[in-house]
């Protein structure tokens, strides 16, 4: 399935793209991330799963500092995430994100949504940014909808625009925060198909999802979160086929039926 990527154990000879070390996060009295330590490598598809409130989305959001971590270290592409704003802008240029609620800009067309960040952040001339945006929208199957506004598109189409928008910045890694959870069932596959294509093209992806079939099919590595802890971090086949943890077995049993 994933010929392009090597298993994480084989990838350790390369420097990791993202390192998280002992990451802690509190929301008031709630300890939502408890000493999370892991690494992500280039070309890898990591899938984060776990029950609601297990901290998986929060962890994903700390990776581009939409949430600040309280303690521990996060290093992305060699740059440490801290209060230094220059670091932050540099990192966010390299880390794309796709949200559960799409978060397209409603006052801009699909094309403008995709072209905005390259024009503003990279200073790409308008004509060039538009051409690139057109290409990306074609790639996600929306060539006929480029001049539509978000409210004129279905949820699945909006999410594909959002993926194109994230790709427009040429990120080194794409974060997906439950990208199909807000979609009607018949639209989930059109989004998952785009994500599978991306994975095949060698894109580095970290995906928070409840789609177990996607995790099994596309994921190189599965991270299981439980009550703010990274309970297990295993290659996908081992995780699904030879799962020894009772708690995770119970979770998988519930979710796949």
């Amino acid at each position: 399935m994933s010929l392009v990527h090597s298993a994480p154990s084989l990838a350790t000879d390369r420097p990791p793209l993202i390192v998280a070390e002992g990451v802690n996060k509190h929301f008031g009295p709630a300890h939502v991330l408890r000493g999370v330590t892991t690494r992500f490598f280039e070309g890898e598809v990591a899938v984060i799963i776990g029950a609601s409130g297990s901290g998986k989305s929060t962890f994903l959001r700390t990776l581009n500092r939409l949430e600040k971590h309280d303690s521990g270290r996060i290093v992305v592409d060699g740059i440490e995430l801290d209060d230094n704003v220059r670091n932050l802008d540099a990192i966010r240029r390299e880390v794309g994100m796709v949200f559960q609620q799409f978060n397209l800009f409603p006052h801009l067309t699909a094309l403008e949504n995709v072209a905005l960040a390259p024009r503003r952040v990279r200073g790409t001339p308008r004509a060039e940014a538009t051409r690139a945006a057109l290409e990306l929208l074609t790639r996600v199957g929306l060539a006929d909808h480029v001049h539509k506004y978000p409210f004129q598109l279905s949820g699945g189409q909006q999410q594909r625009v959002a993926i194109a928008r994230a790709l427009a910045m040429n990120p080194k890694v794409l974060l997906f925060d439950e990208p199909t959870s807000a979609l009607d069932p018949e639209m989930i596959n059109e989004v998952l198909d785009v994500m599978k294509d991306l994975a095949r093209s060698g894109m580095t992806m970290i995906v928070v999802t409840h789609e177990m079939r996607f995790a099994r099919e596309v994921g190189d590595r599965i991270l299981f979160f439980d009550h703010g802890e990274l309970l297990q971090d295993a290659p996908a086949d081992e995780f699904f086929e030879r799962q020894r943890n009772d708690r995770i077995r119970a979770f998988l049993g519930q979710i796949s039926h």
Binding site: N64, L66, D89, R92, R93, V95, G96, M97, F99, Q101, N103, L104, F105, L116, A117, R120, V121, A162, R165, A166, M169
Partner: peptide
């Protein structure tokens, strides 16, 4: 989410 999406894209 609008601000988050814009900031995540690297907009100042």
């Amino acid at each position: 989410g609008q601000t988050e999406a814009a900031r995540a894209l690297g907009l100042s």
